[in-house]
Design a protein around this nucleic acid. Sequence first.
DNA 1: GCAGTATTTAGAATTGTTCTAAACTCCTTG
DNA 2: CAAGGAGTTTAGAACAATTCTAAATACTGC
Lengths: 135, 135
Amino acid sequence: MTGTSPDFPARLRAAGLRPTRQRVALARLLFEGGHRHVTAEGLHVEVKATRMPVSLATVYNALNQFRDAGLLREVVVAPGRSYFDTNTGHHHHFFVEPDGELHDFPSDKVTIAGLPAPPKGTRLARVDVIVRVRR
Amino acid sequence: MTGTSPDFPARLRAAGLRPTRQRVALARLLFEGGHRHVTAEGLHVEVKATRMPVSLATVYNALNQFRDAGLLREVVVAPGRSYFDTNTGHHHHFFVEPDGELHDFPSDKVTIAGLPAPPKGTRLARVDVIVRVRR
DNA sequence: GCAGTATTTAGAATTGTTCTAAACTCCTTG
DNA sequence: CAAGGAGTTTAGAACAATTCTAAATACTGC
Ligand SMILES: [Mn+2]
Ligand SMILES: [Mn+2]
Ligand SMILES: [Zn+2]
Ligand SMILES: [Zn+2]
């Protein structure tokens, strides 16, 4: 068994978001099944293929809200292209150029030693490691 | 003495680029003085303040050509914002949100251990470490 | 200097994303 | 189980960053 089927309306409510039909449809695409890296455009294409199509503006709204609520994380790898990542745990990325594919790798085995202290008046928010590889 | 004054036309020729007035003006702004992180818009504002103003299209062309020639490196930190970095040596970045400032730090002291092997059919191009900090 | 190619330019076009304001829907309350 | 109101969705306009177009101009080798 993969466990209890996820109750998306409840998960959205828990995140402080009304479980509208559009948001539930998007949450289903994003969160049932394994982790994903999606672009707004890509998710819009997917949801349009559904019985419940959603406008592009709503896809952007939802992705930004999900990110702000901590349900997604945003990964910036290339100019003019934002990926939204359903894996919000600690991990890093391979970025395959020029295809633009993103692959996760766990951060448990990765050690980063010798980082300097944050500049005065700032505190650490996150360390992003992007390993760029080519075909 | 800081050494011989840099001969920008020669450096551009060495990079396979004709030393046009525009490219020389931009190279001067970029490469005399210490390392810099510039945006296209920012560099355009700077060069407009010069006796030799340059169109925005040419600024973009030159930045892309300089990058392709290895004179600059491009750093992507936030969606919709590309920085061009005159420091092409190994180093990493602090990114101060929400200001958008980029600061270098040397990679000599930083050790990254335990990186997994690149996905099949790819080889490593570069490892970017971006330390995100907040005020 | 001339020819010929590379470069520059203004402005249009493209791309990714956000905004606007009107229509709609979820949810609480009576 | 109706309102009624706040929150949400939507089409389309607007915006911001970047690239493209095609005509004018500037390097370079001869
Ligand atoms: Mn955003
Ligand atoms: Mn580019
Ligand atoms: Zn990821
Ligand atoms: Zn740098």
